[in-house]
């Protein structure tokens, strides 16, 4: 025992290797192995007559992604992810700013828990609660009637693309739920970025004659940007890969996650599912690369 202990102390490299071996073997074999399996599958193709998977290298499956119906899915998902990210940033900023600059002591803790609890609450329960809210007989319709705004709701639902029979089967509903579910992921990094802005800097801006709005526009927002970019990594990535929210609350127009799920499940076309799954990976890789250049990781 003693000898073993001494060896470990004298040879730190060996110690590190021993410490790292189990997690690296697990993640390497289970996770990277699985990702490799996915990558390999995406270069296979399916025989559309027999439904058999043809295990020879081909790029045909990737070419299928560019068919109009499939490309629409990708485009729709990316646009949704961008809109969700934008809306989250707008809603998150005041909460993060208040928490970082004005909340003190007990309020600070309350704000923190106020963001953490929704973040960690059950994902499905959150989606479910919106099904209750957005249902035709739900609280939103009721509220609109009470406020005499039913005409506005009906008018919105009558619009093409964003409308539908009720909010719970419309693209608007999908958008609201995405924003709701991913919002805390945006608040935390933005708050972290804003915590680092010294109040004296804002005072200096005021002393130099800037109006509050100018300070916001030229001092605060640029300094919050790394946080926004860090948060957008989450909101963007999570929206790209989600297949449950648009399936439960949304129209019949599909998103990437749903395409992956259906292709590998019902359709049995695992190669196409794998190729679809590579799309978020590639988009996120490009996104992360760009974010790293902006220094967003320091705000994580």
């Amino acid at each position: 025992m003693r000898a073993l202990s001494d060896t470990l102390w004298r040879r730190p490299r060996l110690t590190i290797a021993l410490l790292l071996a189990p997690p690296l073997i697990w993640l390497g074999v289970v996770y990277l192995g699985a990702l490799a399996a996915l990558l390999v599958q995406s270069f296979f193709s399916i025989d559309h007559f027999t439904g058999q998977i043809n295990r020879t290298f081909t790029l045909a499956t990737y070419a299928e992604l560019f068919r109009a119906s499939n490309f629409d899915i990708i485009l729709r998902t990316v646009v949704m992810a961008a809109l969700v990210t934008l809306a989250s940033a707008v809603i998150a900023f005041p909460i993060a700013y208040y928490a970082a600059r004005y909340a003190r002591g007990r309020w600070k803790a309350l704000f923190y828990l106020g963001v953490m609890m929704p973040l960690w609450s059950s994902y499905l329960v959150k989606v479910y609660s919106w099904k209750l809210i957005l249902a035709r007989e739900g609280i939103l319709t009721w509220g609109a009637a009470k406020l005499h705004l039913t005409w506005l709701l009906d008018g919105w639902l009558a619009l093409p693309v964003v409308g539908g029979n009720s909010l719970s089967v419309s693209a608007t509903g999908t958008f609201i739920v995405f924003v709701y579910v991913w919002l805390p992921y945006m608040i935390l990094p933005v708050q972290a970025a804003l915590e680092r802005v010294p109040p004296s800097m804002l005072e200096a801006s005021g002393d130099l004659g800037a109006k509050p709005f100018q300070t916001l526009r030229h001092v605060l927002l640029p300094l919050a940007m790394p946080g926004v970019v860090a948060g957008s990594i989450f909101t963007f990535s999570l929206t790209l890969g989600d297949y449950i929210i648009p399936g439960i609350i949304g129209s019949s127009r599909r998103f990437i996650g749903q395409a992956v799920y259906e292709q590998q499940g019902v359709a049995g076309n695992t190669p196409l599912a794998a190729a679809f799954a590579m799309v978020p990976i590639l988009i996120m890789a490009a996104y992360l690369w760009a974010a790293k250049k902006k220094g967003a990781f320091d705000a994580l």
Binding site: P23, L24, L27, G28, V30, Y31, L32, G33, A34, L35, A37, L38, Q41, I233, S237, L238, L240, G241, D242, Y243, I256, G257, V260, Y261, Q264, T270, A273, A274, A277, P280, I281, M284
Partner: peptide, 22 residues
């Protein structure tokens, strides 16, 4: 490597594991 499983969308992790099991 440690962060990757939650940084990538869940659907990617899911289908990757499933094809590996298959």
């Amino acid at each position: 490597l440690v962060i990757l499983p939650i940084a990538l969308p869940g659907v990617v992790t899911g289908i990757a594991l499933r094809s590996a099991f298959h």
